[in-house]
Amino acid sequence: MRRNSSPLELEITAAKIRRNVLDICRQRGGYAAQGVALADIAATLYFDELRPDGEGWFKDRFVLSNGHDAIMTYAALAETGHYSLDDLRRINADGSWVDQSPIEGQLGFEMTAGSLGQGPSQSAGLAWALRQQGSDARVYCLFSDGELQEGNTWEGAMFAGHQRLDNLCYIVDNNDMQASGHAADVMGVEPVDAKFEAFGFAARRISGTDVQELMDTFGAARATKDKPFVMICDTRLWDGIDCLQKALPMAHYTAKGAVDWDAGLADINAALAELETQHER
């Protein structure tokens, strides 16, 4: 716990992020299944782990490498108040300032990440530069299991291990899914933890969907000295929304007509109401 958020409050925020993901994606389709599965990570990052800079943004850096999953960041930044849902509902529409795959300069995005596999090395460079400058800012980089199949990822990891970048925390969305099927079938990435350990990281495997576990793991990352840290999150697409699971396994991109968005929203709103009742007690 870094900003005194309670697990229940973070769960409520995560439910709202899921609701935003569906609300936004129902307009024209999108990477909704990923957004939903990453909601707990987003809630924990933006509402507990990243330290505010006192000027409306964050002192710690979050780098999204799997740029297509920007929906996670947008949905979270609707909760922080940095984006309005009205703007987000126009995602990727002609003339909208909200791009589905954001480019650098878009509020909330450190780098242009539509071309996958670049975040791990760029964030290692960022962490190194911040340390050179004497900054105590930390760098968090989220990337996908598909990106583990790209060479640049391992160059970044090797650099981070060699430089003992303990201000760097990788978050791997190990959802065993990529555009063309299960990673295990396309080109297996396991054992992810042992690979990073061999590159000089402290590694921990978690579900990625339990806010208490996420807070504990971010705490362990901060407590780790002389090594970069990686948390391998075994998330699953559409996690937490049973009625939408029938889109699996090919839920890489959820087309507008592929799922019953209303049913999904009803599920989330019911879960949210339940959490809010618990909170009032």
């Binding site: 995602i91 990727n92 529409a93 002609d94 003339g95 909208s96 791009d99 480019i103 242009t112």
Partner: peptide
């Protein structure tokens, strides 16, 4: 960088 949107746009 190019913006997002439809191809004609």
């Amino acid at each position: 960088w190019a913006p997002g949107g439809t191809l004609p746009y």
